[in-house]
């Protein structure tokens, strides 16, 4: 793959320019498009080696579509994608396949993304055979090594997906992605389906792998808090466009764009003193107080005044 070897040190891992994609939403009787919807409308960003770019936004903003376009799992209408120095959109089918092993994807629902009839060991071993030509004992050893790396016992290889919890399966999905030694992993809502107490485990695993192997992540999520703590840079998407981007603390601390402001102020805050007393709420709703005054708990006054809700 000659195109990928001339990656200069200055060149970012991934560079996306003015990406566009629309979908046909309505067809007439003859199958001709009568209505289209712009899912992605001119998105540009760069992702340096070893970093995480978070993409946040609400349902239908176009986040997943961007992720799929970058890996050319969907064909863009316009724009360019440079990954590892290669122009992804002009690659031949064969070169694209070779590039794809260095750019993996993990999805929200691990149950749906793993073949239920394949043993976990086979699932992880498949890319090893395809990409590295590993066979027999060498392959088994590598599978066990990968399982160990994502914190699963070796016995896991001989079991089927339905025998695992969501968190364990997401680890299996990560192990499969790691098998082809990628430089980039596109993570589309990787922990949205997991229990709160398990989410952090999976995210920590991703953070550790990044520190170890210099992996880059395109991290797609609708959870702003999550993206803030996980990503180096954050891009906020709305209606197919990136409306604002920057380092997480900057973006969340001092949002500039009105949409970002609305988004940030809508995040529920896990801190004491957020709950306004019944009396205050009643006053806010301009309803006369009920005859029995409820007891007012001490509430911090500055929170009261600055409360955006």
């Amino acid at each position: 793959m000659p195109e990928t070897t001339d990656t200069g040190p200055a060149e970012p891992l991934l560079e996306v320019t003015d990406l566009r994609k629309s979908f046909v939403t309505k067809r007439d009787v003859f199958g001709r498009a009568v209505a289209r919807e712009d899912a992605v409308r001119g998105v540009s960003f760069t992702l340096p080696h070893g970093r995480t770019l978070g993409i946040v936004g609400e349902t239908g903003a176009g986040k997943s579509t961007v992720g799929r376009l970058v890996l050319r799992l969907a064909e863009p209408d316009a724009g360019s994608v440079r990954l590892l120095g290669a122009d992804v959109l002009s690659l031949s089918r064969r070169d694209l396949r070779r590039l794809r092993r260095r750019a993996q994807m993990i999805f929200q629902d691990p149950f749906a993304s793993l073949d239920p009839r394949m043993l976990v060991g086979q699932t992880i071993g498949e890319p090893l055979l395809l990409h590295a030509g590993l066979k027999g004992a060498a392959r088994t050893a590598r599978v066990v090594e990968l399982l160990g790396r994502v914190g699963l016992p070796a016995g896991t290889a001989d079991r089927y997906p339905h025998e695992f919890s969501g968190g364990q399966l997401q680890r299996v999905a990560i192990a499969r992605a790691l098998a082809s030694e990628p430089d980039l992993i596109v993570c589309d809502e990787p922990v949205a389906a997991l229990d709160v107490s398990v989410q952090a485990q999976v995210l920590n695993l991703l953070l550790d792998l990044q520190a170890e192997r210099g992996l880059s992540y395109l991290f797609i999520s609708h959870d702003l808090s999550l993206v803030r703590s996980f990503a180096h840079e954050v891009a906020v998407m709305n209606h197919g466009e990136i409306v604002e981007s920057g380092p997480g603390s900057e973006l969340f601390g001092h949002p500039q764009h009105p949409y970002t402001k609305e988004l940030v102020s809508a995040i529920p805050v896990t801190r004491p003193g957020r709950r306004r007393s019944a009396a205050v709420r009643r006053a806010a709703a301009s309803i006369p107080a009920a005859p029995e005054p409820p007891v007012v708990r001490p509430v911090l006054s500055h929170v009261l005044e600055g409360d955006p809700s």
Binding site: S165, V198, Q199, N204, L207, S229, F230, T270
Partner: peptide, 24 residues
């Protein structure tokens, strides 16, 4: 306490998140 600790909103940007080991 574990739930509170692993709540990302409480943590800000970090190199490692706090988590509860094991699963439900």
């Amino acid at each position: 306490a574990g739930l509170l600790g692993s709540s990302p909103d409480v943590q800000g940007h970090v190199e490692r998140l706090r988590s509860i080991p094991g699963s439900v």
